[in-house]
Design a binder for these strands. Structure first.
Lengths: 153, 153
DNA sequence: GAGAGATCATTTGTACACAAATGATCCAGG
DNA sequence: CCTGGATCATTTGTGTACAAATGATCTCTC
């Protein structure tokens, strides 16, 4: 109440908010840049970042329910649904009934899916490298550590 | 050719690729977290991050063509089109013919748009603060500096 | 001053991203 | 057992994100 009536300390600063300096904007730009590097670097595999994430995770897990795969890759159920549909349409993963839970379906990579992951792994590693290229090794460690905390806090 | 036939140096490492450690994944998660904080923190203004970015930029610029506003906020022409349409539908910005260029249209914030930015600015600053909350002040400076380079390299 | 090439805005199509609602099924506590 | 709350997958609706194509207009250069 009282504070509102006091004279403003900063007299009439038009806008102390520079969009280009906001974390959110910088995170978005960095993510954009990574997506562009990914698109360029993934080559003939022609996978999107999310398709790659889902596929490589499923190969590592062996099999998983759709929602679980979504949790492992940070996609909500509505989003993982479309990603799985497209991977299935390309014959990279299969779906079968879960004998232990009639709500769930079991996803598993096909031979083609596993082969594609193996063939694409070097490109994926190169993409992460290229994304971090602006930083030297010491900076990369620091950045990744801080980014990790920003992501999971 | 020859290399392919040599024994593998790492004998049969199944997968040296942990999705959770990849920059791209961490950038996406951090961006997701920021979006959630934004949604929570923007309050009654009910703007999306991109709508806020476009509006606050237009208030700062005074007026701009649609494509230019897109460049200032890192949105391609197809994307800024929808953002502008929604801001116009809410009466926060207006569009008029550009006398100097008959292809372009001039966008400008309305009084309501300017008022909304002024009213929402504290929340926007708090959102950036909250996003950076996991880091102490020294870490924030380092992180923002490195992130800047990752975004614009 | 007449193209050639760039720029402005739009449209179409595909792919996330997430809120909200739905119906089927699971499971734990009474 | 059996029922209330959780979980599985889907659907609908809105909002980015971007490639590609289009038509109108601008501008530069010869």
């Amino acid at each position: 109440m009282v504070l509102k009536d006091l004279p403003r300390p900063r007299q009439h600063q038009p806008l102390t908010y520079a969009l280009e300096d906001q974390v959110g904007h910088l995170l978005r730009r960095a993510h954009q840049r990574h997506a562009a590097i990914f698109l360029e670097g993934i080559g003939p595999a022609a996978l999107t970042p999310m398709q790659w994430a889902a596929l490589v995770t499923l190969v590592r897990e062996g099999r998983a329910s759709q929602n679980r795969l979504g949790r492992l890759t940070a996609m909500d159920p509505a989003t993982i649904q479309g990603v799985v549909r497209r991977l299935r349409a390309r014959g990279l993963i299969t779906r079968s009934a879960d004998p232990a839970d009639r709500r769930a379906s079991l996803l598993a990579p096909t031979g083609a899916g596993i082969a594609l992951v193996e063939a694409t792994l070097p490109a994926a590693i190169a993409i992460s490298e290229a994304t971090l290229a602006p930083l030297d090794p010491a900076e990369r460690r620091i950045f990744l550590q801080l980014l990790q905390r920003m992501a999971f806090a």
